[in-house]
């Protein structure tokens, strides 16, 4: 009985304003299921950062959440450009965001480090020209 509930969300890559919708829905869902606030907060941050990345750096993608009793798994998948150097991408402050994106308040190079910080497991599977899949887990204490 590990992943009892599977939630699926599409992240629209053309709509900047819609980024954040999946994380909001997931947050509401987890609240109604009575998960601890801290767990919900960390998951919301991780999904939000991932969503924004899929909108800014890829053409959108999908967010799947498997809600289990002891852990919650998040899978963010896109078929965008991929990340050539994951180690660099994971460094705080490293970003390929354009000037335009930076002017709208993103591109500080903090998204991936923030996802790492807020989750208990994080694995990035990426291939240039094919896409990126990020799997994260948060343990429910």
């Amino acid at each position: 009985m590990s992943d009892i509930i599977q939630l699926h969300y599409d992240v629209d890559g053309t709509d900047f304003a819609a980024a954040g919708e999946a994380s909001m829905k997931i947050k509401k869902e987890l609240r109604s299921l009575g998960f601890p606030q801290d767990v919900i907060r960390r998951i919301a941050i991780a999904v939000y950062e991932g969503e924004i990345n899929m909108v800014i750096h890829a053409d959108g993608g999908t967010a799947d959440v498997n809600v289990g009793l002891d852990e919650i798994e998040i899978i963010l998948a896109d078929t965008g450009p991929g990340i050539p150097d994951v180690e660099k991408a994971m460094q705080k402050g490293w970003s390929t965001a354009s000037e335009e994106v930076r002017n709208s308040g993103f591109g500080a190079g903090m998204g991936l480090p923030n996802m790492k910080k807020n989750t208990d497991e994080m694995v990035i599977d990426t291939e240039v020209g094919v896409g990126t899949t990020i799997r994260m887990k948060v343990y429910v204490a």
Partner: peptide, 21 residues
Amino acid sequence: DPPQALDDDRRQALVKRMQIE
């Protein structure tokens, strides 16, 4: 002060959430 959760027991809450779906 949230309204009543589906169930106080999280396992039961998850089961009920599946039933709703």
